[in-house]
Amino acid sequence: MQTLLEMSGVSVTFDGFRAINNLSIAVGEPELRAVIGPNGAGKTTFMDIVTGKTRPDSGRVVFGERQVDLLKMSESQIARAGIGRKFQKPTVFDEQSVRDNLAMALKNRRGPLSVLMWKAGERDRARIEALAEEIGLLARLEDRAGDLSHGQKQWLEIGMLLAQDPRLLLVDEPAAGMTPAEREHTTDLLKRAAQTRAVMVIEHDMEFIRRLDCRVTVLHEGSVLAEGSLDHVTKNQQVIDVYLGR
């Protein structure tokens, strides 16, 4: 397992509030990693920094073997470099069909002209159907994404992430609002994805994390409080204090 993403000494301040404080974190490939922490610990801001939405005041974020500097890239360049992100709220394009949603995410050339000239080939078609099968939406390919249930939208979004074929997957609260059966399906999806790539999951639900059975990083006030297996970190006195608010 080699290091894929390395963040070191990153700090961000919003109007005097220090959201991320000298944060250093590293993820390998392949790896499944859970990130937990109380509200305001900086979990979402961490993802914002990696995906280019927020620029840090200081620090370094490098990605891949060639150690490319993510801080110099735009959101779309970062996405093309191989980092996919799933938002807290499911954000699929409601007005368009499941197939169009997946087709847009497919790993193809992204320039306006090549997209204008694009025609779906046999390979693309097969890939879309394979993905739809994996997320359990094969029967609904031609339906409007807006007509899907909440859980199905979450899967569609995960499917779109997989279609991008990223090396690093950032997943923000994937199990929120899901039925127990859906959660199980989601866990399977993530675990399977993590066999070939790096997956980082932000989650509040300890049960869900336990089922993921992976290394856990605890964030608090913008920096790493503890790291290790779930059992290890839940025994940590500091983590207990933070969670119980002492």
């Binding site: 959101e75 779309s76 996405a79 093309r80 992100r85 007005e95 368009q96 169009d100 847009m104």
Partner: peptide, 18 residues
Amino acid sequence: SVIRAIRDNEARVRFLGY
């Protein structure tokens, strides 16, 4: 598809790499 997606959620399209 892409431009309609931009209309509906510009940021999301960016994270798809466009």
